[in-house]
């Protein structure tokens, strides 16, 4: 008796509730993610994004409601769900003592893939880590750690990848690198559910966006659909105050202004 939408939905949540003690974090979350799409869960800090990801990746049990991933129930078929997914948590979960290569080989062995070495070499090249492969992960920059983290998640080619705030704390350059990785994943047919608090990130990457606010999804759809929710544009006249940049430039003289 599965609803018809479940046939194409690779991730589905219905009426999921979760409280920590008296604190209600999720108050009935429904969401559906189509196979091969990039789905962004948008929300401010404390909205419950990480809790959604943890329930879907079998790390937390929901108090009520159902959730399935790749056709498997997250609480009754946790083992099969874990076979189908990969989780990249909020903080790059790499082993600092090991080198980049050793981190990848560790995951490859735990995922029981054939030829761990070949897969590792391939991923190192794909994530531009070949040169740094034999340095310890503790010596990596924030962007490199994140790339290694995501590379570790792709071993074994799981059909569903969860990225929990993949660009939080990264500099703009590293952020763009992660975006490119996500786009590439989507091209390869992997389903990606990512959480973010950056609106432009959702706008750039996601096929569909859901806004999670105070434990429920208050809006969802494609970017175009969400734009229609907004009130129509109206014209307002606002007095323009000088910006600090303009003050700065007028103080230091016109030479700099001409150069810039």
């Amino acid at each position: 008796m599965t609803p018809p939408a479940a046939a194409t939905a690779v991730i589905s949540m219905r009426g999921v509730l979760k409280s920590y003690g008296k604190l209600e974090v999720l108050r009935g979350v429904d969401l559906e993610v189509q196979r091969g799409s990039v789905f962004a869960l948008l929300g401010s800090n404390g909205a419950g994004k990480t809790t959604v990801v943890k329930i879907l990746s079998t790390l937390l049990k929901a108090d009520a409601g159902t959730a399935t991933v790749n056709g498997f129930d997250v609480s009754r078929q946790a083992g099969q769900v874990r076979q189908s997914i990969s989780l990249t948590g909020q903080f790059a979960a790499v082993d600092d003592v090991l080198t980049g290569r050793e981190n990848l080989i560790l995951v490859a062995k735990l995922r029981h893939v054939d030829a761990p070495d070949a897969i590792t070499d391939d991923l190192l090249a794909r994530f531009q880590l070949t040169e740094a492969a034999d340095r310890r992960a503790s010596a990596y920059s924030g962007g490199m750690r994140r790339r290694l983290d995501i590379a570790m998640s792709l071993i074994g080619k799981p059909p569903v990848v969860f990225l929990d705030e993949p660009t939080t704390g990264l500099d703009p350059e590293a952020r763009i690198e992660v975006w490119q990785t996500v786009k590439q994943l989507a091209q390869d047919g992997t389903t990606v559910l990512l959480t973010t608090q950056y609106l432009d990130e959702a706008e750039h990457l996601a096929d569909r966006i859901a806004i999670l606010h105070q434990g429920t999804i208050i809006a969802g759809g494609t970017l175009a659909e969400l734009k229609q929710i907004l009130p129509p544009a109206k014209v307002e006249y606002v007095e323009k105050q000088p910006t600090l940049e303009e003050i700065f430039l007028s103080l230091v003289g016109s030479n700099e202004r001409n150069e810039s």
Partner: peptide, 13 residues
């Protein structure tokens, strides 16, 4: 603390 424990828990091991 480092989050690698969670990574292991979400893997089929």
């Amino acid at each position: 603390q480092g989050g690698i424990f969670e990574r292991f828990q979400a893997m089929p091991i």
